[in-house]
Design a protein around this nucleic acid. Sequence first.
DNA 1: TATACGTGGCT
DNA 2: TAGCCAAGTAT
Length: 293
Amino acid sequence: MPATDTETLPRAVNAWFRANARELPWREPQCSAWGILVSEFMLQQTPVARVLPQWHAWLERWPTPAALASVPPGEAVRAWNRLGYPRRALWLHACAVAITEKHGGVVPADVDELLALPGIGPYTARAVAAFAYGVRVPVVDTNVRRVLARAVGGQAEPGPPSATRDLAAMSAVLPLDEDEARVFNAGAMELGAIVCTARAPRCGDCPLASVCSWRLAGYPAYDGPRRAVQKKYEGSDRHVRGLIMRELRAAHMPVTDAELSALWPDEAQFGRALAGLLADGLAVREGAGYVLP
DNA sequence: TATACGTGGCT
DNA sequence: TAGCCAAGTAT
């Protein structure tokens, strides 16, 4: 029988999670809310394995929001190194400043207050509230969307993201008990991350195998709208931005136009990339060249 | 709602 | 090899 009631899923997922959760530093009970916030920024579109060493270094250097807020944003961008999407470093720094100035240096526990901070959207706000403070709110990321689409919806893949629909779907199965809700939020994400994966799901290891609607229906293929294919990175504007940022991070004095433009042969494309970085605040003009902010 | 935004590992 | 994929956010 498929898991149509609201107790089967959390019971199975939570038992599985309590026995199989990866030991990650931001899941340790003594981890600070700041440590959890930092992990959520780093984990946006980035695999755990690449985040781990960066997270340790970051927390050692800046153990509190105030510590990060006390240095220029460029230091955050430099320390971010090659984690990707360097705007996240800028936003995390801006977040630290806002927390220091408007929240007395304490990471807020309220979803709406978190949402008002730079770089924090619907997922991160709820993740911080739930995992750092135990607040009972639905946390929905790409893993949760996939788990619910399969186990409950009987579909191979979730449809296009819709905050309203996705939060409602999670709310419908979220335990009333605060602690069970926190574990279910984390457990559903973990299940999607290591068992109910996008490709080659390991149904043999899944605690929901016997109740999964998708499996019970015989694994019907997905027939909904396909997600747009990711553009090729090689030769893209993003590629050029990445090259420029790598140069700026390595430099400790202004990098000249000539030095930067030598990175890419297509002048027009290079100009677009540099202008974009300036507009984003990831690079600033200084004297004869460019530096991190 | 669709698109831009890094980087690297895996198949 | 080329493409797919990874705990999203902002516009």
